[in-house]
Nucleic acid binder design. Structure first.
Length: 213
DNA sequence: AGTGTCAATGAGCCAC
DNA sequence: GTGGCTCATTGACACT
């Protein structure tokens, strides 16, 4: 599932460089100054500053900088992310050129973007499972109630409607006519030698009217 | 000051 | 060995 990017259009590329100030949007009190990359299009300068960084990083205490991608850069990255969640080296290179970023930065952005995407997906799945759990709980409650009701009905002695008197009769008074094999009630008639039915006969079955015998 | 966001880093795994 | 990935974590910065 693709996560829709937040769209924006303005272009403002800033990079935090300790000791360097150029952005008017930043508070003057900020200790870390901003370098507007849009105004530094020279490849050598950019490369040179990168080389400086690498040199510095190998020599002990590198002041870690925070790059903030511009909206336009983010937009382009999101666009290419929508097309492909991974980049081959050539795509990475050309995208980096286009965005005036290092290929490594593009790569990192895609890695982080995939991570964010996955996190969002997981969160959505979590939400979905929560809702599902809720509905299952509700369904379970309903079924439990139903079971309780059915149990309550079953507790009383099973009764049947007499085919003759149309009155409810205990099912234990039912018997089966040996000749026609129809259910009759001993309560309606005097007891006979016919085999008596046990109360196990389901009431629904014994409610069938028997006109014979 | 506390917190959230996100670029960046490093470790570990895997395929070639 | 190299390169690419995921994952956990760090640290800079913005925002409240």
């Amino acid at each position: 599932m693709a996560v829709l990017p937040s769209s924006s259009s303005s272009l403002e590329l800033t990079i935090s460089v300790p000791g360097f100030a150029s952005s008017p949007t930043l508070l003057p009190s900020s200790s870390v100054k901003e370098l507007d990359i849009n105004q530094v299009p020279l490849e050598e300068d950019w490369m040179a500053s990168n080389m400086e960084d690498e040199e510095e990083s190998s020599n002990g205490e590198p002041p870690r900088k925070k790059l903030r991608l511009t909206k336009e850069q983010s937009r382009l990255l999101e666009e290419s992310f929508r097309q492909n969640h991974t980049l081959n080296p050539k795509q990475k290179e050309s995208l980096a050129m286009q965005l005036k970023l290092r290929p490594r930065q593009v790569e990192v952005w895609f890695q982080n973007r995939r991570a964010r995407s996955k996190l969002k997906q997981t969160e959505m799945e979590c939400e979905y499972l929560k809702r599902w759990f809720g509905s299952l709980t509700e369904q379970n409650r309903r079924l439990q109630r139903e079971v309780e009701e059915l149990r309550a009905i079953k507790v009383g002695p099973p009764t049947v409607i007499s085919p003759h008197s149309c009155e409810p009769l205990p099912a234990s008074t039912l018997s089966m006519c040996p000749r026609c094999e129809r259910v009759t009630s001993t309560a309606d008639k005097p007891p006979s030698a016919a085999a008596t039915l046990s109360a196990k006969v389901p009431p629904t079955q014994s409610r069938q009217p028997s006109a014979a015998c």
